Structures are given as C-alpha cells and as structure tokens.
Computed example of a mutant assay.
Amino acid sequence: MDWGSPVFVLAIIALSYSCWLVNNWIRAKNGYALENEWGGTTEKSNTVEAQQLRAENRELLKKLDTMQDRMIVLEKIVTDRGYSLSEEIEALRDKRGDETGSVMSLDFSNKETA
C-alpha cells in the first residue's frame, strides 16, 4: 500500500469519523454530554431546566393566545364603535336642529375678505 496515496488519506478520515460517531453513540446511550464538531459538549435536553423552560414556553404561548383574542375583541369594539358614534352624533345634530327649527351650519373655508 502506498502511504502517500489519496486512498490512504481518505481511509484515515473515514476511520476517524466513524470512531467519533461510535464515541458519541456510547455517550448518548449512557447519558453523558455529547461532543459537537468543534470539540465542545452538548448537554442532554431532557434536564430539569429544559423541562421548566418547556413549561414556561407553554404558559407564555397560552397567554399570547388569550392576548390575541382580546386584541381582536378590542379592534372590533374600536372600529364598530367609531362608526356608530359618528352616526349618533349626526342623529343628535339632526334632532337638535329639528327642535330649534333651524340648523346653524358652520363654514370653515378660507374666504378672503376684500
């Protein structure tokens, strides 16, 4: 076998990678922290802290859903009430004008006086 050939280099890379996979499989099976590609470790995600974070996440998602429902109701109140409020104001103006007999119109246009 030629020690300088590309086949030998690829065989060493394949052997190293497969040993790394076996090492991580054994670590995962026994509950140890796993190694990542850069030599750092990754803890198991099923710890007490992770369970607390998941519970908090579920709680926050429920709050977000209720807030979104409340926002929809408030938008309906604001938009519907604004339209009916302007109609009520116009109805009161018409009613007041009928009672006094005359309606005073306000003209705010810019007319130049000579």
Rank of each mutant, 00 (worst) to 15 (best):
M1I: 08
D2A: 04
G4M: 08
G4S: 13
L10W: 03
L10P: 00
A11N: 14
L15H: 06
S16M: 13
S16P: 01
S16C: 11
S18A: 06
C19A: 15
W20F: 14
W20N: 12
L21A: 05
L21H: 03
W25I: 08
N30S: 12
N30A: 07
A33T: 14
L34V: 05
L34G: 06
E35K: 14
N36Q: 09
G39R: 04
T41I: 06
T42N: 04
K44Q: 12
S45C: 01
T47V: 06
L53A: 07
R54M: 07
E56K: 15
L60G: 02
L61T: 10
L61Q: 15
K63P: 01
K63F: 05
L64P: 00
Q68T: 15
M71S: 08
I72T: 08
I72P: 00
L74R: 03
I77G: 00
T79R: 06
R81F: 02
R81H: 07
Y83M: 04
Y83D: 06
S84Y: 06
E87R: 13
E88V: 06
E88A: 14
I89G: 01
A91G: 02
A91F: 08
R93L: 04
D98V: 02
D107E: 13
S109Q: 12
K111P: 01
K111L: 05
K111F: 05
A114K: 12
